[in-house]
């Protein structure tokens, strides 16, 4: 790989262009492969597309750029502490619009750290909630028939639905 390349340009699924640094792209195997393809390719005009929408890709790249220095070199405990705080702030996002897509993207791009973080964020949103509260948070319509609903109540006598 040519060492002169510091950043590559990628396209989102909406067709917007994004720049991602080489060190940040290393956090994702598929991105890293893409990057090697670009660097070794004769046809330098070709811009790879990532099947992630623009809104989500902005966040994914933001995460990569923040975590790349630590992932590539290792960091002190105080940095780890700071990064943890940053992660918490970073995950304060709309559940339906962004968190959903971040999870799909982190899974698709094999980004363990982001995937873990997003899964934990989703799980934390479910903790201690009743069934209808979870439906509200995740914008899910109750699709059980009234008979099924009654059956569920019988099967889980200790659970609060409302």
């Amino acid at each position: 790989m040519s060492s002169s390349v510091e950043a590559i340009t990628v396209l989102s699924s909406d067709g917007d262009e994004f720049k991602i640094t080489v060190s940040a792209a290393k956090l994702s195997k598929p991105l890293n492969w893409m990057l090697e393809d670009v660097c070794f390719s004769d046809d330098c005009d070709e811009v790879p597309t990532i099947e992630v929408n623009s809104k989500t890709l902005v966040k994914v790249i933001e995460y990569c750029e923040k975590h790349a220095p630590r992932a590539n070199s290792g960091a002190s405990d105080s940095d780890a502490e700071e990064l943890k705080k940053w992660d918490i702030e970073f995950m304060k996002m709309d559940v339906k619009d962004i968190l959903f897509h971040i999870l799909m993207a982190a899974n698709y791009l094999h980004m363990e750290g982001l995937y873990d973080l997003a899964c934990q964020t989703a799980a934390d949103l479910m903790k201690g909630m009743t069934v209808s509260q979870i439906r509200k948070i995740f914008h899910i319509k109750n699709d059980f028939s009234s008979e099924e609903q009654e059956q569920l109540r019988r099967q889980h006598p200790g659970c609060s639905f409302d």
Binding site: Y115, C119, Q120, A122, A123, M126, K127, G128, M129, T130, V131, I134, R135, F138, I140, K141, N142, D143, F144, E148, L152, H156, G158, C159, F161
Partner: peptide, 19 residues
């Protein structure tokens, strides 16, 4: 992966959210 991070009460709740 998300559901595995839940305790049993929360898990029971998510199992009743939708089909």
């Amino acid at each position: 992966r998300i559901f595995m991070a839940l305790n049993l009460v929360d898990f029971a709740a998510v199992s009743m959210v939708c089909s």
